[in-house]
Design a binder for these strands. Sequence first.
DNA 1: CTCATAAAGACAGTATACGGTCAATCCCGG
DNA 2: CCGGGATTGACCGTATACTGTCTTTATGAG
Lengths: 189, 189
Amino acid sequence: MAAGSRASFGRVAVALCIPHRRRNPAPLFPASPPPRMDDLYTMPGHLIRRAQQISTALFTEECAGFDLTSVQFAALTAIKANPDVDATRLSALIAFDRSTIGDVLERLEAKGWILRSASQGDRRVKLLRITPAGSKLLRDVLPAVKRVQERLLAPLAPEDRVTMIRLLTGLAELHNEVTPAPLRIAAQR
Amino acid sequence: MAAGSRASFGRVAVALCIPHRRRNPAPLFPASPPPRMDDLYTMPGHLIRRAQQISTALFTEECAGFDLTSVQFAALTAIKANPDVDATRLSALIAFDRSTIGDVLERLEAKGWILRSASQGDRRVKLLRITPAGSKLLRDVLPAVKRVQERLLAPLAPEDRVTMIRLLTGLAELHNEVTPAPLRIAAQR
DNA sequence: CTCATAAAGACAGTATACGGTCAATCCCGG
DNA sequence: CCGGGATTGACCGTATACTGTCTTTATGAG
């Protein structure tokens, strides 16, 4: 595993090496001619997609056997921390698309990890609550989830790990409003 | 737009602030008790998902009117740079899942941007080639795609932009083998 | 009180992702 | 030459994402 994941550094490094130094400090991304593969490989958009792939792969690997996705983990965690939220506010708490969360909740309910009950005050709303089974699952899977986070940053130098979190946090915060599902901490009603 | 995207820094910053300083430098991720929202918000996995959301949103916004996704852009770019690749090697060049790329190619073909022709030597293989319409599209959309990359990193400090690319590149390279679709530069036959 | 509006959740349609299977085909060792 | 193993692309099934629409229900203005 570890050996395998280190096998092809050299080959990949051919194109994925440290960002090219450019003479002028001005444009981070070069001119207009037909995009070359090298350009593609240094585009943040491409790199972020790769990071997401890696994140998902590690989660799947570490949490195999729990029948849980990272998305479901986030939802479950937020429901436990916010008993009786409704779907819309939950989606804001974890920056999910409102259209997507319905299916996620349905699967969580089908597995017996959450309950959806009609709200008394507002008949449009379904309140969400974690079940004992859901709590137990969350407890059991937590070590694996932590391993995912550690393994994700493990290949970076220790000081780079903190930097990575800082930069990603800044990115998410400063771009919060451009996403279709912006994060809202205080889910005001 | 710009004003809107800066409207809620304070609120979001409540939970998405600079990573907490911990007394011991040891564990980057804390102990075992029930995960709190704050933990979730600093998990690299969560932050990477947010970054992907942002990247997609910016691409959609900048490239609206081209009827093109970021995935399709990457495929088209790679096909242009590697005439007569087949689907399997293409997927390795841009780190796509082999199961996914079939549909992507079908859509590209339906829009008249690529051609799929049977290989003479190997009757299993379909060779891929960009059409003039595809080349024109790529030329036309390139400025928008560059704007996406610039806007993605724009909110970071200039020195942080380079760091971000360096760290993401390292992450992708060092974790290359854990993904289901590892990147292969030299698509050896 | 009533109507326009807004909000909640369901649902349909499109596009990735990824695991797994399958038929056709290739290729290498015997 | 031949058969088993590997490869290619097509599919199927599941899970996200996101846009847009629709029904039901709340709520606030007049």
